[in-house]
């Protein structure tokens, strides 16, 4: 019981991170029909920008960034989160303008390979000594390390604690707010309508007077700032910050991509659903079956979904034109 509840809590926190990242993949795919492989590197950048800012801001407040006991007031965390989102949003804008826009009419494969190139470029620039360096760092705590809830539940032959930390709740709450904002933006505003129109048909949208380039740019900014938020929340939960080119980041991005595909790529709500589904499969599989195959469960699920429902859980079936 306690173990089940604990696993559930972890799955919810991790699921919201996957969902945030998956949203970026799915939005870009929905509009440009290509997979932005550089997206996971934006997450990394969001995490490292947060780390750099925290190390600048905390000493200004007279706090020691290396002492986990002293947590700054909550507005510091919020400020860092917003700055990281703005920085990554700008970067997303720049990447789209410089790398992808010139290829708008090029074959899909060219764009895909450019995306891989951008990804490698970002990873390796990040590794440079005067950027972030190639060593892992420890993220300073920006929230007090409190347990909101510590329940003793029966488990097996004894009682064990279920711990819900402030960090987990913050991750879940921040992600939920961001996802609701996105939902509103996409389905209730004019800009959202324009995005959906471009996603439906770029040519027709531009004939209707929709500024396609601006909509595409906006999509990248939106996706990138969500990725930055995910990066920030990720290092809040896991303060051991891996170097920018560590393969673990690629795996994180890949899982979020799988989440987008499972949910139905191009579908915003599907990405959120997919994020939670793979987090549950991963966490419960690791706990109840074996942790050796943690990643296998995720990718096995992908294969099953692709076989049974190729368009994903919420994806609409593709109508073949006759």
């Amino acid at each position: 019981m306690a173990d089940f509840a604990q696993t559930l809590m972890t799955a919810l926190a991790i699921g919201s991170l996957y969902a945030l990242i998956a949203l970026g993949y799915t939005m870009v795919y929905g509009i440009l029909k290509f997979i932005n492989f550089a997206h996971s590197d934006i997450v990394v950048l969001g995490a490292w920008v947060s780390y750099t800012l925290a190390n600048k801001i905390l000493p200004m407040l007279g706090l020691n960034p290396h002492n986990p006991e002293t947590a700054p007031p909550l507005w510091v965390g919020a400020l860092i989160l917003l700055s990281a989102m703005v920085a990554c949003g700008l970067l997303g804008f720049a990447i789209e303008r410089l790398a992808y826009k010139p290829l708008r009419r090029a074959p899909r494969l060219n764009v895909l390979i450019t995306a891989i190139g951008v990804s490698l470029l970002l990873q390796n620039i990040g590794q440079l000594n005067y950027v972030f360096g190639a060593s892992p760092q420890k993220m300073p705590a920006l929230m007090p390390n409190i347990d909101l809830l510590r329940l003793s539940l029966p488990s097996g032959d004894g009682y064990r604690d279920v711990v819900i930390g402030l960090v987990d709740v913050m991750i879940f709450a921040t992600s939920a707010v961001l996802m609701l904002v996105l939902e509103y933006l996409v389905f209730r505003t004019k800009l959202g309508t324009a995005m959906r129109a471009v996603s439906f048909s770029t040519d027709n949208a531009s004939l209707m007077g929709i500024p396609v380039d601006r909509v595409v740019s906006f999509t990248f900014v939106l996706g990138s700032s969500l990725a930055a938020a995910a990066g920030f929340l990720y290092v809040m939960k896991y303060p051991g910050l891996n170097q920018p080119a560590h393969s673990i980041w690629v795996l994180l991005g890949l899982k979020a991509f799988v989440a987008a595909v499972i949910g139905g790529i191009g579908n915003v709500r599907g990405a959120v659903l997919g994020g939670f589904v793979i987090a549950f499969v991963e966490q419960f599989g690791a706990f109840y079956i074996s942790s050796n195959y943690r990643d296998v469960y995720v990718f096995a699920l992908l294969i099953i979904i692709l076989l049974v429902r190729p368009t994903g859980l919420l994806g609409s079936p593709v109508r073949e034109k006759v």
């Binding site: 696993t7 673990i248 706990f287 943690r294």
Partner: peptide, 16 residues
């Protein structure tokens, strides 16, 4: 796997 960030599934199992 080296570089992993989340060990809660393993640790919950170990705790049990």
């Amino acid at each position: 796997q080296g570089g992993d960030q989340d060990y809660s599934a393993q640790l919950t199992a170990i705790r049990g």
